[in-house]
Amino acid sequence: KKVTINGVEIKFNNPEEAVKFALELAKRLNLRIEFHGDQIKIE
């Protein structure tokens, strides 16, 4: 399963991993996060 985070394609074994990764990243950098299907936007 491929997920695009800020235009960067990252391959994950499952979608939950991708979501956890994105949330952790957003929390660490104190950023806002948006989900659009397989696209995750962090700003």
Score class of each variant (00 low, 15 high):
2 K>L: 13
5 I>G: 03
15 P>F: 14
6 N>P: 02
43 E>Q: 11
20 K>N: 05
33 I>S: 00
35 F>E: 02
17 E>A: 11
26 A>L: 10
5 I>V: 09
2 K>M: 13
3 V>A: 02
39 Q>P: 03
12 F>V: 03
2 K>Q: 07
28 R>V: 07
33 I>G: 00
42 I>P: 00
19 V>R: 10
30 N>H: 09
20 K>Y: 09
12 F>P: 00
2 K>S: 13
15 P>L: 13
14 N>S: 14
10 I>A: 02
20 K>S: 06
7 G>P: 04
36 H>L: 13
33 I>Q: 00
39 Q>D: 11
31 L>C: 13
14 N>K: 07
4 T>S: 08
5 I>S: 01
9 E>G: 05
4 T>E: 04
24 E>Q: 10
3 V>N: 02
26 A>H: 01
16 E>D: 10
40 I>H: 02
14 N>D: 10
31 L>Y: 05
3 V>Y: 06
40 I>S: 01
40 I>L: 05
25 L>C: 13
22 A>H: 01
11 K>G: 07
25 L>P: 00
27 K>F: 11
15 P>E: 10
19 V>L: 14
40 I>V: 05
1 K>H: 13
32 R>H: 06
32 R>S: 05
17 E>M: 10
20 K>C: 15
9 E>D: 07
3 V>T: 03
1 K>F: 15
21 F>L: 04
30 N>I: 07
16 E>F: 12
12 F>C: 15
14 N>L: 10
26 A>T: 04
33 I>T: 01
10 I>N: 01
10 I>L: 11
1 K>Y: 15
9 E>Q: 09
26 A>W: 05
9 E>Y: 11
32 R>W: 06
20 K>L: 09
26 A>I: 07
14 N>H: 08
8 V>L: 10
40 I>F: 03
29 L>F: 11
17 E>I: 07
3 V>F: 06
23 L>G: 01
19 V>M: 14
34 E>C: 14
39 Q>R: 10
28 R>M: 09
30 N>W: 12
30 N>G: 11
5 I>F: 13
35 F>Q: 03
27 K>R: 13
42 I>V: 07
21 F>E: 01
4 T>H: 06
36 H>E: 11
5 I>H: 04
1 K>T: 14
30 N>S: 05
29 L>Q: 03
35 F>M: 06
14 N>E: 03
7 G>C: 14
1 K>G: 11
35 F>V: 07
40 I>D: 01
5 I>C: 15
18 A>W: 13
13 N>W: 11
1 K>E: 05
39 Q>Y: 14
15 P>H: 13
41 K>F: 14
15 P>K: 09
24 E>M: 12
24 E>R: 10
32 R>N: 05
19 V>E: 05
8 V>N: 04
28 R>Q: 06
25 L>T: 03
15 P>C: 15
14 N>I: 07
19 V>D: 02
6 N>E: 04
17 E>C: 15
13 N>Y: 08
6 N>Q: 05
11 K>D: 07
36 H>P: 03
33 I>M: 04
7 G>H: 04
23 L>A: 04
30 N>M: 08
37 G>N: 08
15 P>V: 11
26 A>V: 06
24 E>K: 08
38 D>T: 07
20 K>G: 03
34 E>S: 12
4 T>A: 04
4 T>N: 06
36 H>D: 12
34 E>T: 13
26 A>K: 02
29 L>N: 03
10 I>C: 15
2 K>P: 06
23 L>Q: 05
11 K>L: 14
5 I>N: 01
16 E>H: 09
30 N>V: 07
31 L>I: 09
34 E>W: 11
2 K>W: 13
1 K>Q: 10
19 V>G: 02
24 E>H: 06
11 K>N: 13
13 N>S: 12
20 K>E: 06
32 R>M: 05
7 G>Y: 06
35 F>W: 12
13 N>I: 11
38 D>Q: 06
20 K>F: 10
12 F>A: 01
20 K>H: 06
38 D>F: 12
43 E>S: 14
23 L>F: 09
27 K>H: 09
41 K>M: 12
24 E>V: 07
14 N>V: 07
1 K>C: 15
28 R>S: 07
9 E>N: 05
30 N>Q: 07
37 G>V: 08
18 A>L: 11
29 L>R: 01
24 E>P: 01
21 F>Y: 09
2 K>G: 06
11 K>Q: 12
12 F>L: 04
11 K>Y: 15
25 L>V: 06
18 A>C: 15
24 E>G: 07
41 K>Y: 14
22 A>W: 11
13 N>F: 10
11 K>V: 14
3 V>Q: 02
